[in-house]
Design a protein around this nucleic acid. Structure first.
Lengths: 204, 204
DNA sequence: TTATTTCGAACCGTTGCGTCTCGTTATCTA
DNA sequence: TAGATAACGAGACGCAACGGTTCGAAATAA
């Protein structure tokens, strides 16, 4: 999630004692990634991660609250989760670039499955759900908000009249997540164009 | 799910032996509903259901594959899951009625939470996921398909040009599910009107 | 050096799972 | 009516994983 604060150290204050092992951290994330791809989320256990990473369970519990948090960090490390947000000059261009970058992210089956598992765990574990929402879902909304804010700043007509920024985000991310969670159809270029047809009226 | 076939009986052929206890079936579904509302999906266990229902665990395992299937039946029993699909004469009217009925369904927090839990379990347990998709998600798509098919049969201009029926469904259900799963905002009348503004171009 | 912290490893008790076995009860068939 | 059959409640069983604890060793800052 955030490469946890872990044990209490109030600030960047240097403290005595052994430092956190970077090797173990990497081994844990790699083990979580491997086990997930092999056995799915149901087969992912803290004990299994510890065994494959060659570390003790305590080393995991010290730095992550749940196995979902471990998986989230593993995902963030494997696939870069940031989006460039290049300014193409037009709302339609920006939106197309945003959708393309988002699709590229959720392209590989491994990443897709991880996102599904994390969204699922977010429903069942309320505490993790709050972390997942603020650390991932809200950030994606904010990114799209930049695109929409630019369009408004340019004075572009914007998308459909009477459509709030919030609802545009719901439509975009909702359609994406629904495809991933429910229909399991691929996120292809055709969907990009159809979403643009709905949300960017500048053409048709 | 389907009030399971349970043990193998090839057809409606009468068989010897004791019949299934309708009292136990009802008690199990009621217990599952109660425990879920009290303790959430994480607190829902087969042993807990059996204890509250006053039955043996075997009686549950005989008729349902997983606790998610029990919860699905409990949900189906508590809230009627069918939608009227009245023909209002226009595409916009039909769509508005469909959305209103769908929203009314997911209105109560209990039902919302159950849907979240079932969607989550569908991600983690692939076998249940397939049952959930065919027995619930696909049926909702089919219902909306009736509305869209009527519009086409009437020769109505339909929604946005270049928008496939499949994508319209993805947008509608995607937005709804995303609100429930991710933002947790209520499904209000304002969202109905905004979706209509996007998908029913007959006005604006 | 000394105090502090993390490390790998192992050991708990607890919980829930899924299967199995009782003896009982209900229902169909002969 | 008698016997076969199947679901019933109840509970025991082994198994897996959880979450927490303890241990000595290793690493690091004061």
């Amino acid at each position: 999630m955030n490469d946890n604060p872990g044990p209490d150290h109030a600030a960047g204050r240097a403290r005595p004692g052994r430092k956190r092992s970077e090797d173990s951290r990497r081994a844990i994330l790699a083990a979580a990634f491997q086990i997930f791809t092999e056995a799915g989320y149901a087969g992912l256990t803290v004990e299994g991660i510890a065994a494959r990473a060659g570390c003790g369970k305590q080393t995991i519990y010290r730095w992550w609250k749940t196995k979902a948090d471990v998986l989230f960090d593993a995902l963030a490390q494997k696939s870069e989760l940031h989006i460039p947000l290049t300014d193409t000059g037009t709302y339609e261009g920006d939106l197309r670039a945003f959708l393309a970058a988002t699709f590229a992210l959720g392209d590989t089956p491994q990443v897709r499955d991880m996102l599904c598992a994390l969204m699922a765990e977010a429903q069942i574990d309320p505490e993790f759900g709050e972390r997942f929402r603020t650390a991932f879902l809200q950030r994606r909304r904010d990114a799209l908000g930049v695109v929409l804010g630019r369009a408004r700043a340019r004075g572009e007509p914007g998308p459909v009249p009477g459509l709030s920024t919030s609802t545009i985000m719901d439509i975009v991310f909702g359609t994406l997540w629904y495809r991933v969670l429910a229909t399991r159809e691929p996120l292809d270029q055709a969907l990009v164009e159809e979403l643009l047809a709905v949300l960017a009226p500048s053409r048709d």
